[in-house]
Amino acid sequence: MTFDEKELINGCQAQDRAAQKRLYDVFGGKMYAISLRYTKNRDDAQDILQDAFIKVYEHIHSFRGESPLEFWIRSIVVNTALKHLKKQKNMVDLDEVYRTDKDIENAEQSLAGFQWQQLMEFIRELPAGCQTVFNLFAIEGYKHQEIAEMLNISEGTSKSQFARARTLLQQKLNKEHRFDNESIKRQS
């Protein structure tokens, strides 16, 4: 924990509005990006961001500095997003099990050359269940068992949703690359 961060936490614990604003300024952008990654539209992401920061300010006194502040805030944002998605019943398709296309699955694709905004749009275009599981597993780093507990689904469902998410993402990545290659050919 840096000195500034400690000062920031102390200020937020004392409910100092300037410190709260600074905390928001420091982490708001990143957390907004996370909220966007879990939702389909910006209004929902903004609601999540707002709810999450209210929780952060209300529970900042329980933060002991055992992990970086950003991780702590991030976990609150992710949990708020999950709660929001559950409320909207966006994960109704989670129980469905999908078979994966082995050929596509094996064709691993590098992300080199893609902007994060572009990749985020790919993720947001995924079916809601796939989107959530992919975010939790691939990006947040949770295990399937943990995801199963968090989303109240089976571990197998989590795995199959993730597999489907990756298949769909591979297709999107391949398509983008194909367009790139075609455009290169046309240029040459």
Partner: peptide, 24 residues
């Protein structure tokens, strides 16, 4: 590949609309 995804979004940040802070 997962690590690659993680890295891509590690620094991802987008400025939220100003009315979010006002709402908070």
């Amino acid at each position: 590949l997962n690590e690659e995804w993680r890295k891509v979004f590690d620094k991802a940040s987008e400025t939220p609309p100003p009315d979010i802070w006002e709402g908070i």
